[in-house]
Amino acid sequence: MITRRSILAALSAVAILSAGGVAHAQDKVYIPLISKGFQHQFWQAVKAGADKAATEFKVEVTFEGPDNETQVDKQIDMLSAALAKSPQAIGFAALDTQAATPLLKQAQDAKIPVIAFDSGVDSDIPLTTATTDNVAAAALAADKMAELIGGKGKVALVVHDQTSRTGIDRRDGFVNRMKEKHPDIEIVDIQYGGGDQLQSTEIAKAILAANSDLKGFFGANEGSAIGVVNAVRETGAKGVTVIGYDSGAAQKQAIKDGVMAGAITQNPVGIGYETVKAAVMAIKGEELPKTIDTGFFWYDKTNMDSPEISAVLYD
């Protein structure tokens, strides 16, 4: 009886697996991309860019990333499984470079070219890095903020986290520019919401409650920015200039509605596309520049429908 049921259970397991399974084409050039995230719209846009390049260059691309940017060990497991498939090249956005170093060395020894993307890999193993200059991008946000609030007043930040490279760069890029160029602007609070919309909303509401004279609010990634927008909407706060980061349908709508003044956008589709393109070039043995700047843009109500900007915004 036990045996019959075990067989039954096992068979159903196999059935489920085969249903979800996809045969792996061995003859095509295979390039796995291990990213820092997956379900977030930003990463899906990177994936879309990678898929676009995959079709164009006729290569097979897979895209994986951990649930959130703290799961360093899970990312290492993904990289390990990707290497086991003996790919021709690999795209990687490290959560922690040191933790990944043994596996990257393994890739180097196996002569698998590594292309870094987004926040990149802090080592000399990757041939190139396709990335946004986050410090410069956040500094642009600070300049725009200063311009919009007239060069003085209280400003607060909601940032996604205080340990990741992008979190640190965007926070410091914004804060340092304020200190250097706009001394009359006071940064009253910096809080971290994990990029979670709800958590960021609560944080932003608390900051608004504590600072009734707040002039400006910067949300350092999509989730943080939407949190700030929600908080301004829910509390009905007046006279707060909100600046966001990245895009997504909710943020675009907030800019159209006038709740958000504008935002910085990276070029996620370009990041994914350039990563795969660089990988293909590396396989062919072509020269690559040290970094591939995929660019960033300021967008607001006036230019968001222009072809140049709308091409890099995602829903």
């Binding site: 259970a9 159903s12 397991a13 489920i16 697996l17 979800g20 399974g21 996809v22």
Partner: peptide
């Protein structure tokens, strides 16, 4: 999880299959 990755199963499906296996077990 490793097997699904080796088979290049899309990540959203990996999560679904893992959930099904837990319930089934």
């Amino acid at each position: 999880l490793n097997g699904l990755r080796i088979m290049s199963v899309a990540q959203e499906w990996q999560t679904i299959v893992t959930g099904l296996i837990i319930i089934l077990a």
